[in-house]
Write a protein that binds this DNA or RNA. Structure first.
Lengths: 234, 234, 234, 234
DNA sequence: CATGAATGAGGATTCATTCAT
DNA sequence: AATGAATGAATCCTCATTCAT
């Protein structure tokens, strides 16, 4: 990625043409970016190749050249979405933190990421409408997830050992819970705002919900019976 | 209703054609049912009027007759989905139960309803892709939700008063949390199964997740400092 | 066929609209006729659905409605071509004629048919470019040909028995020979005229070639050693 | 030629890339060969410039460099096909053979050539679909054919003079007859096999048909009335 | 000479919707 | 009330050809 950027920077110095013909990397990146927007806004079936061409400034033919067909382009969008979140996540260093802090940090990161990347939520939703038809084929994406599970598992073990967390929590369940609370709220804020007659998309509401997620997750993780009680019962 | 039935009975004697032409109610119900399936499976843009006509056995022209256009048909589907869940919910009688029992019941009902009505999840997701464009227009649906909020609010108050629940919980937040955990899991089970390499659609996993939702919600609702509070009260 | 014509005639009396909407039979017949011309002129790949729509006066969508896709339309054209020649042929009554007369009649009919139906030659040529890909799938066409072989076989047997024809002639070979001489000349008249610098498409040339086919076929069928045989029999 | 070879040898030492860039002759020959295959398989309209580039290993731009456009490339293919058969034919030396032997040889050569050069048949067929549009423009090809007609004419005259052949046979007609029987069978073997439910592409069938052509042509050429009869009538 | 990116006009096919009966 | 034919505007995709290097 750095190499690429360098190269294109170097070149754009030489010839400052706005949107670059003869610059395959830039062209295909522009197409991908436009495709992310379009698929995000309209879903798979609603997305229009013509619109992507227009948005990206590229010739329609180039889309087929670089991505094969609509499916291929969508697949590229899907992959880039997952690669995006997982690689950001990799910088969290949960192992260096106390269990409670680690979970707080993971929850905060996740919520912030979802807030900052609405396209991720949208692609997810689209992909699930298709029952993960495309995702299943993407080995590249599938390999991305075991580090995440290991990291969470490690935190949970440490927390249980120190008595901070309840025992027996499944790390996959925990991650899904965190994601649920964040993604569902954001993905469904439009219908939720409508039915509850309350603007859940407003900044204060969003901040409140972020705190709520933390409260729910940490509230749940508290040991089932406080230590004192346990001792008392013995 | 009686009139209609009488009429159609009278006529079906006259001309015994299998599926009923000249039976407006049956025709439009068949169309709606087919539309639910189609929109559920394909989303709004992916749904095909032709497919709905085929699936329902009705003439395509009838769809336009009863529902105006594709939008109108979709709106009908959307409304029927919300009416379905809210009217089932109305039978819960949460006010008659102890706070903890009431929440357990609400959680269990909600999870079971989502499990039994995948079309509800799908429609929700589709509607959110469109930022609730259609829902906003449906006064009928919007009016359906204040009883739900009131009921939950009442339970939370009773729980807080008795020391069973923490205080300051927003009923809308609580409902969204319950819905999040259920809907997100089910809507996303296809991608989640893929990325976590684990069949989250299997019966035991589904049952485990149902228990997990209860644990999370009730775990969260526990008073924040149980020992102190409890001690104080004793 | 007669029924159809009658019906559409009856109707066109009632409502004299030039090209008939609401007359499926006429519409699909018009499409087929236009398709025959287009595929004949341009071959499969060169044919344009748009052109067929224009030529037939039908809406493009109707082509897909009646024939499925380009392949289906081509297949219909192919079938109609074979049905055309074989059903005309069926009226020849070769069994009622003396062997030599029967062959003369078959040759004359075949040549005349080819002359009158250039589209048949063209479709044949197109189909062979595709190695009979479509024909192989058409059971309907394949069943059309055994009566022809039987009829020729019978004539050859009678001719051999009476000493008019040589023995051991394969009826399929004979038919292919007759077809070869006629079809090749006509299909290739354009290149042949060019390379031999002689207008082989002119009427006198066509008549001369018709006589030539007869002479070749009958010349070939003469018994191999006429003198001896004839003498012996006298 | 020598210069070119020298040059390319010198360079192939320098950069041993498999197929030769910087070797104009090889590049254009490779393009032509690929074009022959492509036009043969798909016809003019069905042929793809991209496919020819891929098949030949040449850059698409080179095709335009050497042949101008699709038409020019097709024309080159067409010319090479005719040059191929006519120059092979030139070696037959029919004048040195007895008339019957000469015809036998011509028939055998022609059949063998068609068998060995399916692309010739295919190009012919394609060119005739276009009514010899391209051929007419190719002076080079047109000049190729008068020697053939002269040679056949000479043989026929000698045969008629010696009483071996019937009189009044048009040499162009004779050649077209020979070509008809060979080309039609081979070009149409796919449809003929299908409609006659018999594999006419099998080796034994091909050999049998080769003999059949000879039998038909020589059978036809036999004098109409044996000499004895003629004498008797005088 | 050679390359691979780029293009615009068109190609088959599909869709929601309306018309005539 | 119900039907099946008909439509025109898109929609995805492909093609021959040219441009910049």
């Amino acid at each position: 990625m750095t190499a690429t950027q360098h190269r294109s920077t170097a070149r754009s110095a030489k010839k400052s043409r706005g949107a670059g013909p003869r610059d395959p990397e830039r062209t295909s990146a522009a197409i991908l970016a436009a495709a992310v927007s379009e698929f995000t806004d309209k879903g798979y079936a609603g997305a229009r190749i013509d619109a992507i061409a227009r948005r990206s400034g590229a010739n329609k033919r180039m889309i087929y050249h670089y991505f094969g067909d609509k499916d291929g382009l969508y697949r590229a969008v899907l992959e880039s979405a997952y690669v995006g979140i997982r690689s950001s996540e990799a910088g969290l260093q949960l192992a260096d933190l106390a269990p409670e802090k680690a979970i707080e940090r993971l929850v905060a990161f996740t919520w912030d990421y979802f807030l900052a990347h609405p396209e991720f939520l949208s692609i997810l939703s689209t992909e699930n409408l298709h029952r993960a038809k495309f995702l299943k084929k993407s080995q590249r994406v599938l390999e991305l997830h075991s580090p995440l599970v290991s990291a969470i598992s490690d935190v949970l073990k440490r927390g249980a050992a120190s008595g901070t967390f309840r025992t027996g929590v499944d790390p996959v369940h925990l991650y899904i819970s965190i994601a649920s609370l964040g993604i569902f709220y954001l993905s469904n804020r439009w219908t939720l705002s409508a039915i509850f007659a309350r603007d859940l998309t407003a900044q204060p509401e969003l901040r409140a919900w972020g705190r709520h997620i933390s409260a729910v997750i940490l509230g749940f993780l508290r040991p089932e019976k406080p230590l004192a009680n346990k001792a008392a019962r013995l």
